[in-house]
């Protein structure tokens, strides 16, 4: 588990790249149980046909779990998939949709 200073450092970094008008979200529990309790609301299972992603959600290309944030995603944001331990960056595809791209 990280210390507070590390979180604050990241906040500062994000402030440099983020617009000021990002929407923020309160995340509910989704029934996802594949990570320790404190992280569970940041992930959910993709429900298949009929499901859709919110502006604060991207799909992990490695393990297909939906990754969530308390704020709207923007290109360049760093995201972590804890269920499969992958690091990613949010990118915008040609069709305008946001996707997570794995970084090593």
């Amino acid at each position: 588990m990280t210390g507070t200073s590390q979180v604050h450092q990241t906040l500062e970094t994000d402030r440099e790249v983020a617009d000021d008008d990002r929407r923020t979200f309160v995340l509910d529990e989704t029934g996802f149980k594949e990570v320790p309790k404190r992280w569970r609301r940041f992930y959910r299972h993709w429900q298949g046909e009929g499901d859709s992603l919110g502006p604060n959600e991207v799909i992990c290309p490695v393990c297909k779990v939906v990754i969530r944030s308390t704020r709207e995603f923007r290109p360049g944001d760093r995201v972590y998939c804890m269920p499969c331990m992958s690091r990613m960056v949010v990118v915008r595809r040609d069709d305008g949709t946001l996707e997570a791209e794995v970084t090593y």
Binding site: D14, R15, D20, R22, R23, T24, V26, D28, R71
Partner: peptide, 10 residues
């Protein structure tokens, strides 16, 4: 399943 709060910064 999340609830939007509104515009806010980082």
């Amino acid at each position: 399943t999340s609830t939007q709060l509104g515009a806010a910064g980082s």
